[in-house]
Write a protein that binds this DNA or RNA. Structure first.
Length: 584
RNA sequence: GCGCCUGUAGCUCAGAAGGAUAGAGCAACGGAUUUCUAAUCCGUGGGUCGGGGGUUCGAUUCCCUCCAGGCGCGCCA
């Protein structure tokens, strides 16, 4: 909100002191200090440039502070502190004005336009269509959908996309598994494929197939293709329904098979060949992984292998060159993946953000190297690894224990079970609380509890409480008005207003760093700040002017909490009934 | 063997792209309600930021190294 004022002011201060260079402006960092004693904004600019300027940091800071064109309507002071920080403090006039500005902006408060309409594609979940979505997918769905909203709120043209791997061997295996189960149910002999999918859902799919055509397909020479297509469509529908109920939106469901059909895969291969990035060989020319084959690797020597087509990813930072076309002429996963990302680029996206599961982290370097080999600029692809989720709950003896991901025991592993258990909103909130690339310990007992131990309820309760105050006030003819003259006086009022002022910068930072977890952290703090204000300051009271002012502040807090929750895909309830104490 | 992630209070985690005196929630203990929702608030105790070295005005943050846990390392995806 004051970002522009600060950057322009510091630019002017640098010019005024004869210290201005474009390069120094580029290094400018503005941040919101942790300690409120250090003001509302701070910069280490003087510390950064002191050495090259040849003056003590504090002297540089003093000069900049003096040259800063301070507008008293916004800043009460610009101080030099510590080794040479410049600390800016909001004026009372600015904080008095803030709640009105929040009201005016309404649902757009927190949004900014720094993204300048840049097109960003966020690909997330993209689970193989060979089984129901698990909890890691649930986490990825929460993070991806929130990332899209964060990017939009910061002026990007962002969209979500799901990539369906419907063309590889995995889906063939799915078809064979279903065919085998169908045959089994019909009392026929048919070997279950090695490494096939054993879940109960395979039997369910088999049982749902039309018996006539299924029987015919069983006997047909290319019959598994029929089973594959049937099973695939069911799985895709199943996943779409789960994600829909969970609240994850995708602008497009992109099928890998489209890339094969359209010739994009072959076209990508031609481009790589034309760029001299491929060669035929039995073993990679570049291989820096030689000192250790993986413990269980296929210790196949060159003699046993036919020639395959390699991509020179080793030139671009990968450990070794990778096979893109097998000796039997079929592409490995890398080639269509590359074709897919070239397709994203050709659709006009400037940045592709991919959310991958923890088992794919080693593939990041390979994929980026492959993109470089294809001539796609560095920085196009950003990969966020969504780390694994460990579920915990009280065991038989009452102690916390990790939920074993065992389907046989019928315990929670699937997204849909999780939603059924704790609700989609609570699940999303919990998944967004931790940084994406850190392992997440998810305590189901806490999530199930509808009380103060549950941060999702804590934030929602703050919103409901404000809504309740607004209703109470409305019954007495009081409504928050934008143009209200507000004079913040109590420390709790000032503290709340200062926290609300942070929100736009918080959103900007969370989007820029691709760190949605900053949202729930901020909201919990903001809710706490509101509760403190509530206890210290009677909103609807004797003094009409004070009441109107505090009502305006409360409404501003409500808007910030509602906007923050909306970014997370969590509702902001007008009412929350207190649940009866559940007997344990 | 190699690579990636993680290591911060009893537990779960923040720490805002290197900043100032390391924070929150839960758990423990002690308080607050004739008042707009007590699903709330206030207070107390609790730390060698895994160990060691380095970079610099300054390191929980960056680099090296060691230790511990997790994940991965295929002509699977």
């Amino acid at each position: 909100m004051v970002w522009k004022e600060l950057t322009e002011g510091l630019d002017a201060a640098l010019r005024g002191t004869g210290l201005h260079t474009p390069e120094r402006m580029a290094r400018l960092e503005l941040s919101i200090p942790r300690e409120s004693a250090h003001g509302d904004w701070t910069t280490n600019l003087a510390l950064l440039i002191a050495k090259e300027v040849g003056r003590p940091p504090r002297a540089v800071a003093e000069a900049l502070a003096a040259a800063f064109p301070r507008d008293p309507a916004t800043f009460a002071s610009v101080e030099v502190a510590g080794p040479g920080f410049l600390n800016f403090r909001y004026s009372g006039a600015f904080l008095d004005r803030l709640p009105g500005l929040v009201l005016e902006a309404g649902g757009t408060f927190g949004s900014s336009d720094g993204g300048a309409g840049g097109r960003v594609l966020v690909e997330y979940v993209s689970a193989n269509p060979t089984g129901p979505l698990n909890v890691v997918s649930a986490r990825a769905a929460a993070v991806g959908a929130t990332l899209v909203r964060l990017l939009r709120a910061t002026g990007h043209d962002a969209a979500g996309e799901f990539y369906i791997n419907d063309a590889g061997r995995q889906v063939d295996l799915l078809g064979q598994s279903v065919a085998a189960r169908f045959a089994e149910a019909a009392g026929l002999e048919r070997a279950f494929p090695a490494g096939g999918y054993e879940g109960e859902y395979i039997r369910e799919i088999a049982a749902s197939l039309p018996p006539g055509p299924a029987r015919a397909a069983l006997d047909a020479p290319d019959g598994t293709a029929w089973f594959r297509d049937q099973a695939l469509e069911q799985m895709v529908l199943d996943q779409r329904r789960d994600l829909d109920e969970y609240g994850a939106e995708f602008a497009r469901w992109f099928r890998e098979s489209e890339l094969h059909r359209s010739g994009a895969v072959q076209e990508t291969l031609r481009v790589l060949e034309a760029r001299g990035m491929t060669y035929r060989a039995r073993l990679p020319e570049v291989d820096r992984t030689t000192d250790g084959a993986p413990p269980d690797g296929p210790a196949a020597g060159a003699a046993e292998l036919e020639e395959a087509t390699y991509l020179r990813t080793g030139r671009f930072g990968d450990d070794k060159d990778r096979v893109i076309v097998r000796s039997d002429g079929s592409p490995t996963y890398l080639l269509p993946d590359l074709a897919y990302h070239r397709d994203k680029r050709s659709r006009g996206y400037a940045i592709a953000i991919d959310l991958w599961g923890p088992d794919h982290h080693a593939y990041v370097t390979t994929m980026k190297a492959a993109l470089s080999a294809a001539g796609v600029e560095d920085g196009f692809l950003e990969v966020l690894i969504v780390q694994q989720v460990n579920l915990w709950e009280a065991g038989a003896d009452g102690r916390r224990e990790q939920v074993k991901m065992s389907k046989r025991r019928g315990r929670i592993v699937m997204l849909r079970d999780l939603v059924e258990d704790i609700g989609a909103e609570c699940a999303r909130f919990f998944f967004l609380m931790r940084s994406t690339n850190a392992h997440l310990d998810f305590d189901l007992d806490v999530a199930r509890r509808q009380n103060d131990e549950n941060p999702a309820f804590y934030v929602q309760y703050a919103h409901a409480r404000i809504a309740s105050i607004l209703r109470y006030a409305a019954e007495r003819g009081l409504r928050p008005a934008e143009r209200e003259t507000l004079r913040l006086a109590a420390p709790e009022e000032v503290a709340l207003a200062r926290r609300l002022a942070v929100f736009p910068e918080l959103v900007r930072g969370a989007a820029a760093a691709r760190e949605p977890h900053r949202l729930p952290a901020y909201l919990v703090e903001t809710a706490a700040e509101f509760h403190r204000f509530y206890h210290a300051c009677r909103v609807v009271g004797e003094d009409a002017a004070v009441s109107r002012g505090r009502l305006l502040l409360a409404e501003a807090a409500r808007i910030v909490i509602a906007n923050g929750l909306a970014l997370m895909g969590v509702s902001a309830p007008e009412r929350m009934e207190r649940a009866a104490e559940a007997p344990e």
